[in-house]
Design a protein around this nucleic acid. Structure first.
Length: 434
RNA sequence: UCCUCAGUAGCUCAAUGGUAGAGCAUUCGGCUGUUAACCGAAGGGUUGUAGGUUCGAGUCCUACCUGAGGAGCCA
């Protein structure tokens, strides 16, 4: 007997096949049952008629509980009345495990609160909406890799355990490394990327990063995934161009390949289809002026707050590129603008619809003396950065790169309220379980 | 760390300081085209914890715990 996935059902119309899966929902109407079976690729509505089945089979199905595992055998048929467009006429059922009614599956088809759902996260990911989001995430990650891999970037992943802060400013998670040594969980692979870029030209790292910030908002996780491309012989303009192309490509891929999931999420496709080049570009100076006109308290020299980012993002139908921030609020390694040393050659991409910063990057300092000066100004331990300074001693070149946060991109593309739904098991300020 | 809000049945929520209730879920019954099906019935409670006020507290007060939203910080 052929086993198929529900996603492939359209290619098996008229055949009798098996679908291994789980009971998603069951509607009963006397002598006819409508079990809905999910298998990870989709949901199949089945039809079981009492007079077409052995009594034992019909009764087993009739009293089956939600999320019981089963293998259904039956004939696939096109059916307009079925949610997926196809339906299976049940001929046989093998129940692998019947969920006990004393402890029924906790996530019912009705509404639930977020606390309960987060406690049940290991089960919640089976639900239609969560499932759709995680499939969009997968497409986003695949698209990122496909874009970079086909544009000359080499994946060179960077360590998770790091001996010191990359940026000195934010809080790091520390962990014991054997006897008495402390190491920190990486908050960015960037410094190492600069080393690999000098070896490979164009590189990227892609993995989890950790920030021990006591942030408790819809845009924050303590563990999140970031892709960080870095390019030798490159400038701020290259960062803006590559990041823009990457975003346009990723959005296009999701719209093309995950249309069904976006429909499940009731995402307004027109909001994604408008994400085309060129993106609007303004300077930090212009952004501050714009925000002040909108009533923000921001002064030149300050960083954008959450509401500021929302104001900037909502003014456009595609990501907004803001560049040349005050050097004082940027990390030590940013190259200053040669014409205006008080601003850094950095750029942030602010997503529309209030999703905030999704890309941050810029050009790095390539002059060893200037880098040393900055390290001293920021009171960073020079010894820890000896290897990093070496990169400026042995064939230094202008170079630039950026980081893009996967969860914020996914939240934006899916139109979600909160990034916690964009990763299977989110880690947040007050949640590390399950 | 700070501000605001909330904790009542497995879940989502009601309940003037005066007998703790509904829908869903579960079980039983009915229904041959259901779309979070519907209809009928049953079981299901230490009202987050500890004190206090009161004849009487789910409700008012205090502290704590847990969670949510936000600020700062950040992708």
């Amino acid at each position: 007997m052929t086993r198929i996935t529900i996603a492939d059902a359209g290619r098996h119309v008229g055949e009798t096949v098996q679908i291994p899966g789980w009971l998603y929902n069951l509607r009963r109407s006397g002598k006819i049952l409508f079990p809905q079976v999910r298998d990870g690729t989709g949901i199949m509505q089945c039809v079981a008629q009492k007079n077409a089945l052995p009594e034992e089979t019909f009764n087993a199905l009739r009293h089956l509980t939600q999320e019981s595992s089963l293998i259904v055998t039956g004939r696939i048929r096109e059916e307009q009345r079925a949610p997926g467009g196809y339906e299976m006429d049940v001929e046989g059922v093998e129940v692998l495990q019947r969920v006990a009614e004393e402890e029924p599956y906790p996530i019912t088809p009705k509404e639930h609160g977020i606390e309960f759902l987060m406690d049940q996260r290991h089960l919640w990911i089976r639900s239609r909406r969560q499932h759709a989001i995680l499939r969009v995430r997968h497409e986003v990650i695949r698209a990122i890799r496909d874009y970079l891999d086909s544009h000359g970037f080499t994946l060179v992943d960077t360590p998770i355990f790091t001996p010191a802060a990359c940026e000195g400013t934010t809080t790091l998670f520390e962990t014991k490394y054997f006897d008495d040594d402390l190491v920190y969980l990486t908050q960015s692979g960037q410094l190492y990327n600069e080393a690999t870029a000098m070896a490979f030209g164009k590189v990227y790292c892609f993995g989890p990063t950790f920030r021990a910030e006591r942030s408790k908002t819809r845009r924050h996780l303590t563990e999140f995934w970031m892709v960080e491309p870095e390019m030798a012989y490159a400038t701020l303009d290259d960062v803006k161009q590559v990041a823009e192309e990457l975003i346009v490509y990723v959005v296009g891929r999701v719209v093309e390949n995950r249309r069904q999931d976006l429909a499940t999420l009731e995402r307004d496709l027109s909001k994604l289809e408008s994400v085309q080049s060129p993106f609007p570009r303004i300077s930090y100076d212009e952004a501050v002026k714009f925000l002040q006109e909108k009533g923000s308290e921001i002064q030149w020299g300050g960083d954008f707050g959450g509401p500021d980012e929302t104001l900037l993002g909502e003014a456009h139908d595609r990501p907004l590129i803001v560049d040349r921030f005050p050097a004082a609020i940027k990390a030590f390694y940013f190259q200053p603008d040669p014409e205006r040393p008080e601003v850094a050659l950095g750029a942030d991409f602010i997503a529309p619809e209030g999703y905030g910063e999704i890309v941050g990057g810029g050009q790095r300092i390539h002059d060893p003396d200037l880098l040393l000066k900055r390290i001293e100004e920021h009171n960073l331990p020079r010894e820890a950065f000896n290897w990093y300074i070496d990169l400026r001693r042995y064939g230094s070149v202008p170079h630039a790169g950026f980081g893009m946060g996967v969860e914020r991109v996914v939240a934006w593309l899916c139109g979600l309220e909160h990034v916690r739904e964009t990763i299977a098991f989110p880690r947040m300020l007050y949640r590390t379980r399950p």
